[in-house]
Simulated assay, not measured.
Amino acid sequence: MASVLIVDDEPENLELLEAVLTPAGHTIRKAGGGREALQAVEQELPELILLDLMMPGVSGFDVCEMLRASERTARIPIIIVTALDQVPVKERVLGLGADDYLTKPIQAAEVVARVAAMLKVRHLRQDLDRTLAYLHELELARHGHRRRTLEDLEGASREVVREPGDPKASMVLLVDDEELTRQFYGDLLVEHGFRVVAVAGGTEALEAASRHPVEAVLLDVMMPEVSGLETLEKLHRRFPDLPVIILTAHPSSQNAITALKLGAFDFIVKGLQPELLVVAVRRAIHRFAEVREKRDLIAALETRVRELESRLAALAGPSQTP
């Protein structure tokens, strides 16, 4: 069936869960604490984790947070098994990325059912990821073929293909380490009237955002060296009003969720309808224009207030003494 890692600092709880799940055909691995659990995951990825919260040293909260922070382990289903039944505890751990929550004392039938349901969801996610990856590669291949055909027939240069006719068109910064992806989305945006600056990494993105009048950013979340999340944080610090749309290959990626928490405007799944990306870019540019207009209005009002204060001070004049 599936490889299940059980994490609990109480040996009797480990034995109980093992006894419940082994007859269902699952391969059981056990860890007596948070640090041991992280080591076990590093050695071999389980298909599902049953995780206790209250453990000495590295707690279940810590384990959940660390697993969700890594792309390698972010998609492992985690079911919390704990004696804590308070709503704030549930909200906290589910907010950290846990998938389900069971309260001790456990009911054997419920544990087996929850594990089976979570594994089914995991398999559906994997099928969806494979389908989206296939669609994305297919779309890139079709676009590359069409692009080469047009260039052969028309002798069009890259600059002509990627630049719209209107020099006043909104400019979009496209950041992705895959050249085919940059070509595909770059040409798509140009076809819809945008100007595009395309770069391959986070460092180049920061430089381009400083040099060009960018109004929106399309940012791949998975890149070597400077990651998409790190690039997002740096862009947000230097250009707080600039909307950033995350590109991800996984619709349920924890990195995409983290990006939204870090201030990303939206996220787009590669392989879905390209029109969705165009709509998201237009919404982002509209938001950017609204924020910029509000800032200009506030600055104008502040200037007007200072002018009025100066006039009032001049009218009051120096105080007269009899």
Rank of each mutant, 00 (worst) to 15 (best):
A141C: 07
M171P: 00
V291G: 02
L260N: 04
G32I: 09
N13H: 12
H212A: 10
A24Q: 13
L140I: 06
L84Q: 14
Q126W: 08
G193E: 07
S252E: 14
A264P: 08
S253G: 15
T27M: 13
L21V: 06
P274D: 09
A205E: 10
R68T: 09
D176G: 01
V161I: 15
G60D: 13
L17H: 10
T149C: 12
P274L: 10
K30Q: 15
R75P: 02
L247H: 07
Q254M: 13
E151N: 02
K294D: 15
K104P: 00
V190Q: 14
I79R: 01
R304F: 13
D187M: 05
V281D: 01
L174G: 06
A2Y: 03
T27Q: 12
M1D: 01
L84Y: 08
R306W: 01
L272A: 08
T181L: 10
R182C: 01
T248M: 05
R287K: 14
M223E: 03
V244R: 01
V20D: 02
A289F: 04
A289C: 05
E302Q: 14
A284G: 07
A37N: 03
S252C: 09
A198Q: 05
G60A: 10
R237H: 09
T321Y: 15
A209Q: 06
E18P: 03
E159Q: 15
F288V: 06
L276K: 08
V87L: 14
L94M: 15
G228H: 02
A209H: 07
A2H: 00
D266P: 06
V41E: 08
D127F: 12
T203A: 13
E179V: 11
P167C: 02
Q39S: 15
R146S: 15
G57Q: 08
T181H: 04
I76H: 00
F184K: 01
V199N: 03
R306S: 12
V41G: 05
